[in-house]
Design a protein around this nucleic acid. Structure first.
Lengths: 150, 150
DNA sequence: TTGGCTGCAAAGCTTTTGCAGTGCG
DNA sequence: CGCACTGCAAAAGCTTTGCAGCCAA
């Protein structure tokens, strides 16, 4: 939630535009979910989005959050990332970037690094399929988990 | 299942040794699960392991497969990897290596590349936590999915 | 012998789906 | 006004847990 307001606004506008352009309806519920995602920098899961949006739209159901996130992923507006533990998390940053993953609590943090962005696959990968993107995951233990377990 | 027999045997022996050394019992069921994992090169999920082992141990239950894989992950004998879709998959190769992931069917293939192994995290990562390993995921669409959908 | 392990059953958690009413375009 | 969307409820899929009997060490 500490994404710069102007960046969040821009993201929300892009998402709205893509939604509208693709023929999907921009409902009150979808708008709130989309704004929540646009402003998120903690890769929230569906449960977290649901609770946050419910503050403003008390009648929303979690099904709608599932359906809307699925639609946004399908449109390429957000990216579904999954840790090795816990529910799927959603990343509103769809540009090239990388992640730090805490193996203990599942925290996922963005890592921006131009050198990693230009990583190209070894030639052998071509035999497996068509690569659209490379993502580096740095796995370890985050500060708070390290502090908690000594 | 096309891992070289001697490599699979070696892996199975290492896993058995680790299990025994850690005070866990090497039961008939565990031995078969462990052999199945040692010989696997397709990153099977629990369901796949269960069905394969059941050919030889018809009375085994899927709970035991869940419990045994969890134990092996905890001991560092196999690695749990998760695609963005479907159940968790298990990788008996715990050395440094990378993956190709099919975004359509969830297939995960190993990629060996010495250059990628020595990738070091950007300095900013140090603020987040302690990194124990870097893994590169090349995401795209595998050959059979590409063929299926044109 | 005995404490850890197994199989069974039930439950928990995440996610998907069918349906009827609602509201966006 | 029509059809996509929503909320509700039920179910499906993956995984974990409690318990009583069994077996590796």
């Amino acid at each position: 939630m500490s994404v710069p307001p102007e960046a969040a606004l821009k993201r929300a506008e892009v998402m709205s535009a893509v939604l509208r352009r693709s023929g999907l309806r921009l409902t009150h519920q979808r708008l709130e979910i989309l704004k929540e995602l646009a402003a998120a920098d903690v890769h929230p899961d569906v449960e977290a989005i649901y609770h946050a949006v419910r503050e403003r739209v008390p009648t929303i159901s979690i099904d709608t959050v599932y359906r809307t996130t699925a639609a946004l992923v399908h449109l390429g507006c957000v990216r579904r990332v999954s840790a090795t533990v816990g529910p799927a998390r959603y990343d509103p940053n769809v540009g090239p970037h990388h992640h730090f993953v805490c193996q203990s609590c599942g925290l996922i943090a963005d890592i921006e690094d131009a050198d990693l962005d230009v990583l190209s696959p070894p030639s052998a990968v071509g035999e497996l399929g068509e690569v659209s993107r490379a993502e580096v995951y740095f796995k370890g233990v985050c500060r708070s988990c390290a502090a908690r377990s000594g």
